[in-house]
């Protein structure tokens, strides 16, 4: 015969809420810090980091190949940085991290843990974008800058690449953060944006081409180095200011959208 002792209920937990707890509204900086920490933790996936790092290294390898060729010229070096670094590496890495910054939270339905809180929406968006930037910058900047250096063409290409990369990182992170807030399947839409909008529009006429971020990053390279990349004729100041203004605008739109968003 087996005796089965009844499992006692766990001891009752203390019932009263802790005393002396101060509660106030959540400040914008606190909201930003909390969101940043949470999103950064969500984005830190080893598989994703390794895959994107490998993608970024293709630019480095291309820069090295140009540098070791006998006929390395400025335009060739600038072309590697612009056509691989600014057209592929930076936008794609930003898409993965920035699109997922809020997009992944929305898709896996954890966004509610940030949304249903007594805090403003813009720090949530900005915190998520900063977390994406924190992930994207170390993966893209060193390989792309290294690519510029390895071309060995000089003429300030490394310095121009640093400036243009930072501008591109900020702009693409902001744009794709907004896409993650707004659109389901943000990766698909983001790729369409990179390939169709940036790919075709940036190489188009002067009018609509101004709406492609790639034109501005290429313009910085041209203006700083004297290279002759196609469809890039803005001054450096314009190449910096316009993308930053666009970044502010799309983050503001994303914040508005988040506050009017249906959350699951």
């Amino acid at each position: 015969m087996t005796n089965i002792a009844a499992t006692p209920d766990p001891a009752p937990a203390p019932s009263s809420y802790p005393t002396g707890v101060q509660r106030g509204s959540v400040g914008n900086l606190d909201a930003l810090r909390l969101t940043y920490g949470v999103v950064l933790g969500q984005l830190r996936s080893p598989g994703r980091i390794v895959a994107l790092l490998l993608l970024s290294l293709t630019a480095t390898v291309a820069g090295f190949a140009v540098g070791t060729s006998d006929s390395a010229r400025l335009d060739q070096g600038a072309g590697v940085v612009a056509n691989l670094g600014f057209a592929v590496v930076i936008p794609v890495v930003c898409l993965v991290f920035a699109g997922g910054a809020i997009g992944d939270l929305r898709d896996d339905k954890t966004l509610v843990y940030l949304w249903l809180r007594p805090m403003n929406r813009w720090p949530i968006v900005l915190g998520a974008a900063l977390a994406a930037l924190t992930m994207a910058a170390p993966i893209t900047l060193p390989p792309v800058v290294a690519a510029a250096a390895l071309t060995g063409v000089g003429n300030g290409l490394v310095g121009a690449t640093i400036i243009a990369s930072v501008v591109g990182l900020i702009a693409y992170t902001s744009i794709f953060t907004m896409m993650g807030v707004w659109l389901q399947r943000h990766i698909v839409w983001g790729l369409a944006y990179i390939l169709i909008w940036e790919g075709f529009i940036a190489l188009g006429g002067a009018g609509v081409a101004q709406f492609a971020m790639r034109k501005y990053t290429r313009s910085i390279i041209n203006d700083q180095t004297g290279a002759r990349l196609e469809g890039a004729d803005f001054a450096t100041s314009t190449g910096i200011i316009v993308p930053l203004l666009v970044s502010v605008a799309v983050l503001a739109i994303a914040s508005w959208r988040l506050s009017h968003h249906d959350v699951d």
Binding site: G20, R23, G24, R117, M119
Partner: peptide, 15 residues
């Protein structure tokens, strides 16, 4: 994080 995002003062969050 849930506590902090509700505006609980940071000193009280662990408790």
């Amino acid at each position: 994080i849930a506590a902090e995002s509700h505006g609980i003062d940071r000193a009280s969050v662990p408790a």
